[in-house]
Design a protein around this nucleic acid. Sequence first.
DNA 1: CAAAAAACATGATTTGCATCAGGAATGTAT
DNA 2: ATACATTCCTGATGCAAATCATGTTTTTTG
Lengths: 239, 239
Amino acid sequence: MQNSKVLSNIVERIKTSCTVSNISCSCFDHLTEEQKELVERNQVLVEYKKGEVIVKQGTFTSHILYICEGLVKVFYEEGDQSLILRIASPKSLIGLTSLPTNQNIFQYTASAYVNTTVKLIDINIIRKLILENGRFATAIIDVLSEVAMQKNGRFFCLNHRQAFGKLADIILCLAGNIFKTDKFELLLSRKELAELSGMSTESVIRTLKSFQDDGLIRMNGKTFEVIDPEGLMKICHLG
Amino acid sequence: MQNSKVLSNIVERIKTSCTVSNISCSCFDHLTEEQKELVERNQVLVEYKKGEVIVKQGTFTSHILYICEGLVKVFYEEGDQSLILRIASPKSLIGLTSLPTNQNIFQYTASAYVNTTVKLIDINIIRKLILENGRFATAIIDVLSEVAMQKNGRFFCLNHRQAFGKLADIILCLAGNIFKTDKFELLLSRKELAELSGMSTESVIRTLKSFQDDGLIRMNGKTFEVIDPEGLMKICHLG
DNA sequence: CAAAAAACATGATTTGCATCAGGAATGTAT
DNA sequence: ATACATTCCTGATGCAAATCATGTTTTTTG
């Protein structure tokens, strides 16, 4: 499909405002055999069913999560409001922000979007490896940096754009970064899209409808198809 | 003053939503004498006058900035819109997000708020030290983590709170974190407060006025005084 | 020191979007 | 198969905050 090519080009250009990251981590590649074994011995593999909470905001951080398979929603909650921080895909690490020893409480909740397999790795082992292995430390820093940069872009996007711009951005990112195709089955409900974009569910629905009416996308239940990525791109920048 | 005590207690409690960080870095303490010398040899000390641009978004990152004295505004710009990412105070590092070797372009602009002294340290030296010295690497990771966490809180704040809540938050943070007193000379203009809070300049002015009318703060030109931190706190949480 | 340029202020108007209310469609338990 | 719960959708209403317009004060600078 030609659109796919346009799509990836576009995503290339607007990477700054990407909402849903798929920053993967190759940090374990840099370990020695001995260190790999150490990790092996201090990790457990756990499967979570769709919807299950993996870690809960406010609990102690004893482990770092490494996603083997599935999708994880990482969100911040306060009262009855919540904000999705990111949607983590396989090979992502969750919990790195709790590495500082004085920061041993999870500042966000993570729950499984689909059935998900996660490795729980003792956080002290990770700390030890950072001390011992410079290349590992560098890889961790790379992940933290990239997440930080994406967050800046998203931050800007959610603050300065309005409904149309935000949603256009999200759709392009989902298509280009997560599903990597212009037609995909969206796992998120409208309500979750709302949490992701910081708008109301109703507004999400209306805006999506209007995109459809304008021939930018096609929707059928949960099936989404990006028809005019260039158009979405334009909206993204204008609005 | 009694307020100061209340203030610091409050800031303690709402650290999640803090807008203006003063995350300091003690990373250089962990270096060996030899490494310290290496840093010495590969750094330059530069003084910037109030308002001068230190690094410009889009340029190549060859150095990491370490603030010795002053205050630096770090902001993201796109078109005629801009968003202040943080206000960095002495002992802060700027440019860490450019550590990944494939990320060698500054994603934000930094400019001096007041006359500021900055150490420019060759980024490759920092990379080398991370590889060599685990404790240094750990310190860098700690900084990145803390910045990330603060950003989450701020993100939430700017998205879910409305004008009153945002500004109350900012005032408390400025008083508690940057100036550490309940009466201070604010360096930021109303316009900059607007950029910091993602609202319009006029709204900032109006909201501040209403805080004053309600006896929460007292203003006189650039002089601000927090009178009722508890009240601001309440507003901050309600919305 | 006067002129120009910012910054500050405030009222009137517009608008984007949340909220509310209610209905259709889809999914899920019994 | 029926009841119940979600999710999805639509229209009406209201409000918060941006924008516009315009004036005042403060600061900068030639």
